[in-house]
Structure formats: structure tokens, C-alpha cells
């Protein structure tokens, strides 16, 4: 299995601050891996996510995602890269309120100029898989938080991205809805989807990810497998 993410001494400075907000950071994430990035506020979690998503560029070092050096791409190429290779899920869902659930899900496919029938079939499949098919023609404003986040996940997956980025995906949800999303992410990863999850929630990180990267002041405080994954691996070894 190859690297989906590779950061080589990537650092991000803001304005003229001497200390970087992030890094320098060297890091790899394998295909099919689920990485949870944790840390206190201001530790650089969102900056790291923005670099991986191609929403921001490192001040130094390199960022390679799905084989593409993002720090060398222009805005236009980055946009294309995002629409084809990255799926993003946000804390506040960031659905477009004036589009129906289906239209929200289809938007990245339409931007990627995926054929109409293929995109519609994929959207229907995701609506079904994620249990939101009955809301296909509804508007996001009428859905619960958990349902909206499922729509956001469906939208993120419509183009079969190499990488799913989730930024505090349960942060705006009640515990029941949070649990639903947690299970959804676990299922996706089990299905082979590479996931990078940014969260404050240690329990979510432990449950969803096989590996946890903890940041403090922009640097890696620890990078280790999660307890749950150890348990899962041990259980797996015993089974074998």
C-alpha cells in the first residue's frame, strides 16, 4: 500500500510570526488508514487539515496527497484536485441551503463533469447507504443535525475521493447523532476509505481511527496507534 499523504518538513507561518503555526512536520498516511488528529485549540489541527485539503499552502516544505505535490499547484489545479481526490466533511455541515439534498450531493460530481446518469446513480447509492434516501428532495434546513452531516458525508464521497477529511464531524451534533456519524466513519474506513479526522473528542479519535496524531503548539506531541485499534488488532491476532 502506498502513501496517500506525505508531508516533508511542511511548516506554515502566519504573517511575520517567528514561530510557525504548524511544523515543520514530516508525516505519512497510508492508503486505507484512518488518522485522528487531536490537540488543544490553536495546536495547528485545522492548519494541517487545510494543507492536506489544498485549501492552504505550506510556507516551507512539501505536501503530497494522492501522489500530487499540492504546494506546487495553482489555485485552478488545486480546485480540480479537490473536486476529484478529496472529500470534506465540516463541523457545521456547510451544506448549501438553497439546494435540495440531492443537488447538494451532486454538486461536486457536476463540477467534475461526471456524466449525469452515473452521478445520479452514485448519489442514489449514497443516499440509500447512508439512510437518507427519504430526504432526497428535501432542503437541508428541514433535516436534523445528524441527517445533515450524513448528507455532507454523501457529498464528500460522490466522486469516490482518495481521501476523506473530516473536521470535527460530530462537534455540532447531539450524542445520538454523534454516535451515528462515528459509526458511519468507522464503516467507511472498514470499506477501505482513507480518513483523516480532526477532533477535540478523544473518544471519537480512539473509536474511529487506527492511529492518533496529537499536536501541541504546531508540533507532534505523539503519533501512535489508538487503543481501540490495538484491541482490534489483538482481537484480530487471537482470531487468527
Amino acid at each position: 500500500m502506498g502513501h496517500v499523504i506525505e508531508l516533508a518538513g511542511a511548516a506554515r507561518h502566519y504573517d511575520s510570526a517567528d514561530t510557525p503555526a504548524l511544523g515543520p512536520l514530516t508525516l505519512t498516511v497510508e492508503e486505507g488508514e484512518a488518522l485522528a488528529v487531536t490537540g488543544p485549540s490553536g495546536s495547528g489541527k485545522s492548519t494541517l487539515l487545510n494543507l492536506i485539503a489544498g485549501l492552504d499552502k505550506p510556507s516551507s516544505g512539501g505536501v503530497t496527497v494522492a501522489g500530487q505535490r499540492l504546494d506546487q499547484l495553482g489555485e485552478r489545479a488545486l480546485a480540480r484536485f479537490r473536486r476529484e481526490r478529496i472529500g470534506m466533511v465540516f463541523q457545521f455541515f456547510n451544506l448549501l441551503d438553497d439546494l435540495t439534498v440531492t443537488d447538494n450531493i451532486l454538486l461536486p460530481a457536476q463540477l467534475a463533469k461526471t456524466g449525469g446518469r452515473a452521478a445520479a446513480a452514485r448519489a442514489a447509492e449514497l443516499l440509500e447507504t447512508l439512510g437518507i434516501a427519504k430526504h432526497a428532495r428535501a432542503y437541508p434546513g428541514r433535516l436534523s443535525g445528524g441527517e445533515r452531516q450524513r448528507v455532507a458525508v454523501a457529498r464528500a464521497l460522490i466522486n469516490r475521493p482518495a481521501l476523506l477529511l473530516a473536521d470535527e464531524p460530530t462537534g455540532a451534533l447531539d450524542s445520538a447523532a454523534g454516535q451515528e456519524v462515528r459509526e458511519l466513519l468507522i464503516d467507511l474506513n472498514r470499506g477501505g476509505q482513507t480518513v483523516v479526522l480532526v477532533t477535540h473528542d478523544d473518544a471519537l479519535a480512539e473509536a474511529c481511527a487506527g492511529r492518533r496524531l496529537h499536536l501541541v503548539d504546531g508540533r507532534i506531541a505523539f503519533d501512535r496507534p489508538t487503543q481501540d485499534s490495538k484491541t482490534r488488532n489483538e482481537a484480530s491476532a487471537v482470531t487468527r
Binding site: 485539503a53 485549501l55 485552478r76 470534506m88 448549501l96
Partner: peptide, 16 residues
């Protein structure tokens, strides 16, 4: 502006 950010995050180019 937030909607525009979402569109850009989903892959809309500056030209689009």
C-alpha cells in the same frame, strides 16, 4: 461568502 467557500472547497475553480 460561506457558500462560496463551500463551493471552492468542493472544487470550484476561481474562474468558475
Amino acid at each position: 461568502v460561506r457558500d462560496l467557500g463551500v463551493c471552492k472547497a468542493l472544487g470550484m475553480t476561481p474562474g468558475q
